[in-house]
Lab assay of single mutants.
Amino acid sequence: QSFTCPYCGKMGYTETSLQEHVTSEHAETSTEVICPICAALPGGDPNHVTDDFAAHLTLEHR
């Protein structure tokens, strides 16, 4: 399964590499985005909106 960065649209990330990408490239970004990992999880929330995606990844998807 691969994920797309909700900020810049780059594709092909794993859960881990998406977290690394967001932390390095978009750490200061506070735009509201939908978490693509939550959306892909069975029973996950397809509409989970977060305005601190880097922190959300760290808390929810480590």
Score class of each variant (00 low, 15 high):
Ser2Val: 06
Ser2Cys: 02
Ser2Pro: 02
Ser2Asn: 13
Ser2Tyr: 07
Phe3Cys: 00
Phe3Leu: 04
Phe3Ala: 01
Phe3Glu: 00
Phe3Ser: 00
Thr4Lys: 11
Thr4Ala: 08
Thr4Gln: 11
Cys5Pro: 00
Cys5Gln: 00
Cys5Gly: 00
Cys5His: 03
Cys5Ala: 00
Pro6Arg: 02
Pro6Thr: 01
Pro6Trp: 01
Tyr7Met: 09
Tyr7Ile: 15
Tyr7Gly: 06
Cys8Glu: 01
Cys8Asp: 03
Cys8Gly: 00
Cys8Ser: 00
Cys8Ile: 00
Gly9Arg: 05
Gly9Met: 13
Gly9Ala: 15
Gly9Lys: 13
Lys10Tyr: 01
Lys10His: 03
Lys10Met: 08
Lys10Arg: 09
Met11Cys: 13
Met11Pro: 15
Met11Val: 12
Met11Thr: 14
Met11Asn: 11
Met11Gly: 12
Gly12Gln: 06
Gly12Leu: 00
Gly12Cys: 02
Gly12Tyr: 01
Tyr13Pro: 04
Tyr13Arg: 03
Tyr13Phe: 08
Tyr13His: 09
Thr14Ser: 10
Thr14Gln: 13
Thr14Arg: 08
Glu15Ser: 07
Glu15Met: 13
Glu15Pro: 11
Glu15Trp: 01
Glu15Val: 07
Glu15Leu: 08
Glu15Ile: 14
Glu15Lys: 02
Thr16Gln: 14
Thr16Lys: 09
Thr16His: 11
Thr16Asp: 09
Thr16Leu: 11
Ser17Glu: 13
Ser17Asp: 11
Ser17Ala: 10
Leu18Asp: 08
Leu18Glu: 06
Leu18Met: 10
Gln19Met: 00
Glu20Lys: 07
Glu20Arg: 04
His21Met: 02
His21Phe: 00
His21Asn: 08
His21Leu: 02
Val22Arg: 02
Val22Ser: 09
Val22His: 02
Val22Phe: 04
Thr23Ile: 12
Thr23His: 12
Thr23Tyr: 12
Thr23Met: 15
Thr23Lys: 12
Ser24Arg: 11
Ser24Tyr: 07
Ser24Phe: 05
Ser24Trp: 06
Ser24Lys: 08
Glu25Asn: 02
Glu25Pro: 03
Glu25Gly: 11
His26Gln: 08
His26Arg: 03
His26Ile: 03
His26Tyr: 01
His26Phe: 02
Ala27Val: 08
Ala27Thr: 11
Thr29Tyr: 10
Thr29His: 06
Thr29Leu: 08
Thr29Asp: 12
Ser30Arg: 15
Ser30Asp: 11
Ser30Gly: 11
Ser30Trp: 05
Ser30Lys: 15
Thr31Glu: 08
Thr31Arg: 09
Thr31Asn: 15
Thr31Lys: 15
Thr31Gly: 10
Thr31Ala: 05
Thr31His: 15
Thr31Ser: 12
Glu32Arg: 08
Glu32Ala: 13
Glu32Ile: 06
Val33Ser: 03
Val33Gly: 03
Val33Cys: 01
Val33Arg: 02
Val33Trp: 01
Ile34Gly: 07
Ile34Met: 05
Ile34Cys: 03
Ile34Gln: 08
Ile34His: 05
Ile34Glu: 08
Cys35Arg: 02
Cys35Thr: 06
Cys35Pro: 01
Cys35His: 04
Cys35Ile: 01
Ile37Ser: 05
Ile37His: 02
Ile37Lys: 05
Ile37Glu: 02
Ile37Thr: 02
Ile37Trp: 01
Cys38Glu: 06
Cys38Gly: 06
Cys38Phe: 01
Cys38Val: 04
Ala39Leu: 09
Ala39Cys: 09
Ala39Gly: 05
Ala39Arg: 13
Ala39Thr: 11
Ala39Pro: 06
Ala40Cys: 07
Ala40Tyr: 05
Ala40Pro: 08
Ala40Thr: 08
Leu41Asn: 15
Leu41Ser: 12
Leu41Glu: 15
Pro42Ala: 09
Pro42Ser: 08
Pro42Gly: 12
Pro42Glu: 12
Pro42Gln: 07
Pro42Leu: 04
Pro42His: 11
Gly43Arg: 11
Gly43Pro: 08
Gly43Ala: 10
Gly43Ile: 03
Gly43Met: 06
Gly43Glu: 14
Gly43Tyr: 05
Gly43Phe: 04
Gly43Thr: 13
Gly43Lys: 10
Gly44Ser: 14
Gly44Asp: 09
Gly44Ala: 13
Gly44Tyr: 06
Asp45Arg: 13
Asp45Tyr: 07
Asp45Ala: 14
Asp45Gly: 14
Pro46Met: 11
Pro46Lys: 15
Pro46Gln: 01
Pro46Glu: 07
Pro46Trp: 06
Pro46Leu: 07
Asn47Thr: 14
Asn47Met: 07
Asn47Ala: 10
Asn47Val: 08
His48Gly: 11
His48Ile: 15
His48Gln: 14
His48Asn: 15
Val49Ile: 12
Val49Gln: 05
Val49Pro: 05
Val49Ala: 12
Thr50Met: 04
Thr50Leu: 10
Asp51Lys: 15
Asp51Cys: 08
Asp51Tyr: 09
Asp52Pro: 02
Asp52Val: 00
Asp52Tyr: 02
Phe53Tyr: 01
Phe53Glu: 03
Phe53Ile: 04
Phe53Ser: 04
Phe53Leu: 02
Phe53Thr: 04
Phe53Val: 03
Ala54Leu: 12
Ala54Thr: 12
Ala54Gly: 04
Ala54Met: 08
Ala54Asp: 01
Ala54Gln: 09
Ala54Phe: 02
Ala54Lys: 09
Ala55Arg: 14
Ala55Glu: 07
Ala55Cys: 10
His56Lys: 02
His56Glu: 02
His56Cys: 04
His56Leu: 00
Leu57Lys: 02
Leu57Val: 08
Leu57Ile: 08
Leu57Phe: 10
Leu57Asn: 00
Leu57Tyr: 05
Thr58Asn: 14
Thr58His: 09
Thr58Ile: 10
Thr58Arg: 12
Thr58Ser: 14
Thr58Met: 09
Thr58Trp: 07
Thr58Cys: 13
Leu59Gly: 10
Leu59Tyr: 06
Leu59Ile: 11
Leu59His: 06
Leu59Pro: 04
Leu59Val: 10
Leu59Phe: 10
Leu59Trp: 06
Glu60Ile: 08
Glu60Leu: 07
Glu60Trp: 07
Glu60Gly: 11
His61Leu: 00
His61Val: 00
His61Trp: 00
His61Gly: 02
Arg62Met: 15
Arg62Ser: 15
Arg62Ala: 15
Arg62Thr: 15
Arg62Cys: 01
Arg62Pro: 15
Arg62Leu: 14
